[in-house]
Structure formats: C-alpha cells, structure tokens
C-alpha cells in the first residue's frame, strides 16, 4: 500500500498521513534560484565558447593564486636546502646563491600580494606540498622499486621510515615472549623533548606495536598496579633503567639501549639492539 504513495515500505505511515500535509515544495519563491533550464541559447560553438571563457577565467584565477604563493613556498624549500648544506658543509657558492635568491623573494611583497597570501597560502600548501609533492615523492619511490634500485617497501619498512624508534621497538618484540610485561623509561624531559624517541615512554602508544605484550611506564607504576607486579623486562633507553633491574650489570657492559629481563641476566647475548 505504501508503495503507491512514495514507493518505500519504511515510509508507510509518514507517506500516507503526515507527509500528506507536507507535499514537496514547489519551486522556490526566488525566481533567480530556479534551476537553469535545459534550454540553451545559440549553437553548440557559442555554447562551448561561453563555457570555455568561464573555464579560462577560473584557470587564470587559480594560476594567479598559485604564482602569488610560489615565492614564500620556494623560500621554505631554499631554507631547507640551506640548512642541509650548512650542516654538511656543502658548496659555499650554492649557499651564496640561496642567500641572494632568498633576499629577492623576501622583497617580493606588496599590499595586494600579502592580502591574497593571507587567505590563500593554505590552498597553495594543499595543491603544491600535500598533493603534488607527496605524489612526486611516492612516484620516485615506486620508480626506484621498478628499476630494482630499491626493494618493495613493506608496512614495516614504511613504519621504520616514519617512526624513528621503530628499530628499537622491533628489537624489543624479537627479544621478548608474547606474555612479557615491559617497563618503559620515564616520560621526562630527557626523552619527551626530542623527536628521536617518538613516544617510547607512553604505554598506550607502545602497546600498538608490542601487543599482546603489555607495558607500563617507569615512575608511573601506580597507574597500572596489576602490571607493576608482573614486570618481566625493562626497556633501557639512553642508559636509563638499569636501576630497575634486580641484578647488577657492570658499567662497562651497559649499552645505552637494551631490553633486559628484570630478574636475571639474559641467557644469550641479546642485549644489543
């Protein structure tokens, strides 16, 4: 029965009773908002010409926005290159070139340019950096793989590329049984102020990689009392954590990074990541 009214069974009540009062609105009261009728004036050529004019105007507008933002975008690239060259003590000639180019770009200002940049630099970043540059980078990697210059990257390889501390995490996984409970280093300024160690002190973050092993952070054992009683291993980072072991490790045999059983020295030589 409902089908006769609106063609759907869930609408049975609504369509027959309530919706009866709510007939679809006729075209809106604003004449300008009527959908453009399919009637097209002129021949196909002039129609396509008019369309092309709008496309051209849009194209020029987008190009203008792109060009206005290109300078500051290039400054970032130049700055990165400068940093790289100064760290590696690279070509002084190139450094001078960069400085000159930087000065020229810095001087390229003006009220209108700055006003446009203020609201459109995000769009440049999206089109140039987030989309095009990333695509180029990935295409380069894929090309190297196809040419045999690089092996096909697995998920683990990519994680290693993006997460600096991943090799240590991988070593931790290889060195511990699946039911291990691992004591992580404390999340104080020594570790948290550098990106080198990512979030190795954060048990919620580490759990992603090491599951089904469990973990807790040193000095915050009270947050996980059940786990604190079951610690089996200690993750040593930057030489910190040896005080948590129930045995002594000679000072000259203490690597700065290691995974050690908490109760007894490791049976095999597995304390070097």
């Amino acid at each position: 029965m409902a089908l006769k009214h609106c063609g759907c069974w869930l609408n049975s009540d609504l369509s027959t009773k309530q919706m009866a009062k709510q007939q679809p609105k006729q075209s809106t009261v604003i004449p300008q908002k009527k959908k453009a009728a399919a009637v097209v004036g002129g021949d196909a050529f002039t129609y396509l010409l008019r369309n092309s004019i709008i496309v051209a105007v849009l194209g020029v507008l987008f190009l203008l926005i792109y060009k206005v933002n290109e300078g500051p975008g290039k400054m970032q690239d130049l700055y990165s290159e400068y940093q790289q060259l100064s760290q590696s003590r690279g070509s002084q000639e190139r450094i001078n070139e960069i400085a000159e180019e930087f000065k020229t770009l810095q001087a390229d200002t003006g009220f209108f340019k700055e006003a446009i940049r203020k609201y459109t630099r995000g769009y440049y970043w999206v089109a140039h950096d987030v989309a095009a540059k990333s695509l180029e980078q990935i295409n380069e990697i894929n090309a190297k793989v196809e040419n045999g210059q690089m092996k096909t990257l697995t998920r683990e390889d990519k994680l290693g590329y993006k997460v600096g501390v991943y090799p240590l995490i991988k070593y931790l996984i290889e060195s511990t049984p699946k039911d291990a409970v691992i004591l992580l280093p404390p999340g104080d300024s020594v570790l948290s102020n550098t990106s080198k160690w990512n979030f190795v002190y954060d048990p919620e973050w580490m759990e992603y990689f090491i599951y089904p092993r469990l973990c807790l952070t040193s000095s915050r054992e009270n947050e996980h009392p059940d786990l604190a009683k079951r610690i089996t291993h200690v993750l040593i980072v930057q030489g910190r954590g040896y005080d948590k072991l129930k045995y002594d490790v000679p000072l000259d045999q203490r690597p700065s990074e290691a995974v050690l059983p908490i109760d007894h020295p490791p049976v095999q030589n597995q304390n070097k990541p």
């Binding site: 300008q32 453009a36 009728a37 009637v39 004036g41 129609y47 369309n51 709008i54």
Partner: peptide, 10 residues
C-alpha cells in the same frame, strides 16, 4: 544564476 545564464547563453 547570472553566471549560469551567461554559460547557457540565455
């Protein structure tokens, strides 16, 4: 609507 009218040649 004005833009669309131009596009359609109306």
């Amino acid at each position: 609507a004005k833009l669309e009218n131009f596009r359609l040649g109306k």
